[in-house]
Design a protein around this nucleic acid. Structure first.
Length: 978
DNA sequence: TTAGCCTTGAGT
DNA sequence: ACTCAAGGCTAA
């Protein structure tokens, strides 16, 4: 069925508030992306760039699409080139039809204005113009995007669709244009695609609206709804669990090389339709589909018949040429897009909206839609401008008028695709909307009990809540009662893993399925027969991630939907039982969360029916599988049990999310710092990122040495960030339990494509390096560029995601966010790299367990950079920088406001000051024996900047010298998290 | 506001 | 057709 929803219908609440609708410690009332429309045409100078969305008709047309792509070269503009040097629709030599570089495949019969696609023409702060074609529709739902009318350029329906993309152009633009573009950037809202058809609803009903802001005082039990006070007190950390849906992401991405219809990949999704009054007023959570799926596909320019994924058939020489072109700093653009996309607070004036349901029901069916592997597509070129110092970079954007900010990570996939090279790259990263990027929804309850025990739902913080649990409840076994496994249970289809009949999980689910229940009684039945883990009442079913009673289900729903922010004036710890559950909603809600209820399970758009689409991966380190319940409890503490598992092996670095007044640690860790920590996982690759990528790349995770590049040896140590463990991943790639086998296949295919940018990058880069040894310049390897792209793409996306969730960052305007990120990305990456190298003196841990010593660096000509990094790392080690300090420093670095282009420098400065205060407070409290630690930490920042400068210079030099291998290594550094 | 029941709709 | 987990409704 096709969606009849027009723009007015709103994608539902779609406009999710920002990066997380559960605004991390900011405000419950996040801005929602509003407005839909505004024709971009007004903002698109024809002379500057053109964005054309070509629409193909469904799948079959894709073939033609591909052919068309080969012929086109676009984005010929070079830095400094004027507006004229922009992309415009070009003609396919083969078809004679207009082919636009920036195109997106959308399905026919849909106009851009219906919210299914949009073209954006953006001008970055650096005068860089980005033309973005966005289509929320993606493969499934987009219709014919009549972009031409929108952009005033390009082609319209007659154009052959050539993948998607965003043209990233560097060019000088007039200030006014830049402003307009900036506005446009701010309007961009990357909206995911709704998995379910959302019927037109009038959400503006009185229900939520009236409740919002009531600020009612609860009963006299000491709890009150802090709704109004939500802005006065830290909010619950935003849950990123709904961030990216692999399914949705992948649904919009290439599913299969063979299924070319999927190659369309939707472009940047511009802010969805204007949310209904309710949504705007009470944005609940950014639509997981949407917010998590900023499906920006940049410049995915398919070459003829080239597989989108690997691009092995790319003309190597062209790649090199393109590489040069790519050095233009497109980062600002991409970042802007990313940021803008996340920022739902920015009004969306896009004429085109992305109703959530656009992708829902479609002829392409579910096999494409719910692919668990969200893919992100973005364009990038991974080059920094080496020649510029960090400081210079910080001011280069607008100040110099240079079209190319030299210090930015230039990410323009299109850059690789543009011109004649037609590098066909599929940017598909598997980015789950979950924190963990996992692909499956999993039950977070803990486990299996011996026959004599009921399954247990382990509280995340047993120490805090055990007393609340009805004693003797089978749900709360003694810690030693039985081996407990945190199960991954697909919420989408719980029964598939934990079927009522106790069916065994599929092979794919082998690791995460729940062991068989005692014969005769299905595990599910056992669970249902157990008391609600929250209040002890009768369980009515699986609600929001756990088995709970109807009342707790309703309570959780109300609390979330109405954005209640209860506060327990008794200091928390109130018992929550059937008799007392009404007494303290704060503690009840807290317990709901602790027991595993998931915020993202609450549908932003309140769509009814259907299967749950939220995903949650509760990942346990393999070491804990089969361990005792106490271990599980510990693990729950570390992972938070909230689908935001700490990076493998980082349990001790990522403390569980602390609810206020729960932990003694909170006395030491300022709330702000904790909030920052709570989103730190977004910075990292998770197991899903790693494993899927490795798998798809045909790599053996244990064979890091095989993938090590440039002789960089595998450290294998337990690093701070890049430790890999054999976490139990349930339903990786979304193969768990939901969907039929065929769907799974699609999902896998999709993920296979999507993950091409992860570990595969390393592998391919490594292979590139090997090629370098034999054939010369590795950059000529077909996979080289694409891998670099993937690396940078993924890395950048992670960073942006992280940034957007930072409590302090969210208050900053989009423009300034972009600016700050542009100015600090290098520092952030290097800092991350150095921090994780603290445990390996004399070595810099690059990625995937690979490390490089100074001696190796010398041989590679990277001594300068590595030496500085080692020195910086030594200082970190000497200062015993811990995780909190590390995350705080990153934020401080990010918020460095000494840049002239900030529009609201005071706000930035104020934010940084808060971070500084938090850090100071923490260091003083935590390390009283080191009174000068705070100052010393700050003194390291200049070192970091100098190191970055060295790195950039080196990068530039290596690139100029064509030393691909060295360049590879640097790219690995960029990659950061492995 | 709670909580039980109903409706919805994707997945099986 | 059925399951079941969403949201909605409404009496208490």
């Amino acid at each position: 069925m096709s969606e009849q929803n027009g723009p007015s219908e709103g994608p539902g609440p779609g406009p999710g508030p920002g990066p997380g609708w559960w605004p991390a410690s900011q405000s419950w009332k996040t801005n929602s992306c509003t407005a839909t429309s505004s024709s971009t045409s007004s903002t698109v100078p024809d002379s500057s760039a053109s964005v054309s969305a070509s629409c193909t008709t469904t799948t079959s047309s894709l073939a033609t699409t591909t052919s068309a792509t080969s012929s086109t070269s676009c984005c010929s503009s070079t830095p400094g080139s004027g507006p004229s040097g922009t992309i415009t629709a070009v003609r396919s030599s083969e078809t004679g039809k207009n082919v636009s570089v920036t195109t997106i495949n959308v399905l026919p019969n849909q106009d851009m204005h219906d919210g299914k696609g949009i073209c954006k023409y953006l001008t970055g702060q650096n005068g860089v113009t980005v033309s973005v074609v966005s289509s929320c529709g993606s493969v499934l739902g987009c219709g014919n995007a009549n972009v031409a009318s929108t952009t005033g350029i390009g082609t319209s329906t007659g154009t052959q669709s050539i993948g998607i993309g965003v043209n990233v152009l560097s060019q000088n633009t007039a200030d006014d244009e830049a402003e307009d573009s900036d506005v446009e950037i701010s309007k961009i809202d990357f909206r995911g695609v709704n998995l379910r058809t959302k019927k037109k609803r009038d959400v503006s009903g009185s229900q939520s609206g009236e409740k919002i802001g009531e600020g009612e005082v609860e009963d006299g039990n000491g709890c009150y709804d802090g709704n109004d006070a939500s802005q006065q007190q830290p909010e619950r950390p935003m849950s990123w669990e709904g961030e990216l849906s692999d399914q949705e992401m992948s649904s919009n991405t290439i599913t299969n090389q063979d299924t070319h219809e999927d190659t369309s990949m939707e472009g940047v999704q511009v802010c969805g339709p204007s949310p209904g009054p309710m949504e705007q007023k009470f944005p609940i959570k950014p639509e997981p589909d949407f917010q998590s799926n900023p499906r920006f596909t940049f410049g995915s320019f398919h070459d003829t018949g080239l597989p989108l994924v690997h691009g092995q058939q790319i003309q190597q020489q062209r790649n090199i040429e393109n590489l040069e072109q790519t050095q233009q700093n497109d980062l600002p653009l991409l970042v802007g897009k990313l940021l803008g996309g996340y920022n739902s607070s920015t009004p969306n004036h896009s004429p085109v909206l992305n109703p959530r349901h656009h992708l829902t029901k479609h002829s392409h069916t579910r096999s494409q839609v719910p692919s668990p592997d969200s893919a992100i597509h973005s364009a990038y070129s991974v080059f920094s401008s080496p020649t510029q110092s960090p400081h210079a970079a910080r001011h280069s954007a607008l100040g110099t008028g240079s079209p190319v900010p030299s210090s930015s990570l230039s990410l323009s996939r299109h850059s690789f695709n543009n011109s004649t090279s037609s590098l066909s790259l599929s940017l598909s990263h598997s980015l789950s909307r979950n924190n963990s990027d996992a692909s499956s929804s999993c039950y977070s309850y803990g486990s299996l009990s011996p026959p004599t025990h009921s399954p247990v739902q382990q509280p995340r913080h047993p120490q805090h809540h055990q007393h609340q649990v009805p004693q003797g409840s089978p749900l709360h076994l003694p810690a030693t009662a039985s081996p407990v496994i945190a199960h991954h249970y697909s919420s989408s289809a719980p029964g598939s893993e934990l079927s009522p009949e106790g069916h065994a999980a599929t092979d794919d689910q082998e690791d995460c399925r729940i062991p068989s229940a005692p014969s005769g009684i299905s595990t599910r039945q056992q669970l249902i027969n157990s008391p609600c883990p929250i209040c002890g009442d009768k369980i009515s079913g699986f609600h929001y991630g756990i088995f709970s009673c109807e009342s707790c289900k309703g309570f959780f729903k109300r609390t979330v939907q109405n954005r209640k922010n209860y506060v327990c004036l008794r200091g928390a710890g109130c018992p929550v039982t059937v008799a007392t559950r009404k007494k303290c909603p704060a503690c009840r809600f807290d317990k709901c969360l602790n027991m595993g209820m998931k915020l993202e399970a609450i549908r932003e758009d309140r769509t009814r029916g259907g299967r749950s689409t939220y995903q949650c991966t509760y990942t346990l380190p393999a070491s804990l599988v089969g361990s005792s319940a106490s271990n599980i409890a510990n693990d729950k503490l570390t992972t938070g049990g909230n689908c935001s598992p700490a990076p493998a092996g980082n349990e001790h670095h990522y403390p569980a999310r602390h609810h206020s007044n729960h932990s003694h640690k909170m006395q030491v860790v300022p709330q702000l710092l904790q909030d920052i920590m709570d989103v730190e996982h977004l910075w990292h690759y998770n197991d899903n990122d790693r494993m899927t990528g490795i798998q798809n790349a045909g790599m053996n995770p244990s064979r890091n040495n095989d993938t090590m590049l440039l002789g960089v040896r595998s450290s294998g140590g337990s690093g701070i960030e890049n430790d890999t463990d054999s976490s139990v991943e349930c339903s990786s790639n979304g193969t768990t339990g939901n969907g039929n086998p065929s769907n799974r296949r699609d999902d896998r295919s999709c993920s296979s494509v999507s993950n091409a940018g992860n570990e595969q990058c390393a592998a391919s880069i490594s292979s590139s390096s090997q090629i370098n040894n034999t054939n010369g310049n590795p950059t000529q390897h077909p996979d080289f560029l694409s891998n670099l792209c993937n690396i940078a793409d993924h890395r950048l996306y992670k960073i942006v995601k992280w940034c957007k969730s930072l409590p302090l960052f969210k208050n900053i305007s989009i423009d300034d966010q972009i600016c700050l990120l542009i100015n600090s990305w290098c520092e952030l990456l290097l800092f991350s790299c150095c921090f994780r190298s603290m445990s390996t003196p004399g070595e810099i841990r690059v990625s995937l367990g690979k490390s490089i010593t100074l001696e190796q660096a010398r041989q590679l000509g990277l001594a300068t950079c590595i030496e500085r990094m080692l020195a910086f790392t030594n200082n970190l080690r000497r200062l015993r920088v811990d995780q909190y300090e590390y995350v705080a420093m990153k934020v401080i670095v990010l918020l460095t406001s000494d840049t002239s282009e900030l529009k609201e420098p005071e706000k930035v400065r104020a934010s940084q000051e808060k971070a500084l205060q938090a850090l100071q407070q923490y260091t003083i409290a935590r390390y009283p024996e080191m009174p000068a630690k705070f100052g010393e930490l700050l003194l390291r920042i200049p070192d970091l900047q100098r190191t970055c400068q060295a790195g950039k210079e080196l990068l530039s030099a290596k690139r100029a010298e064509g030393e691909g291998s060295s360049f590879n290594l640097l790219m690995e550094l960029l990659r950061g998290d492995h």
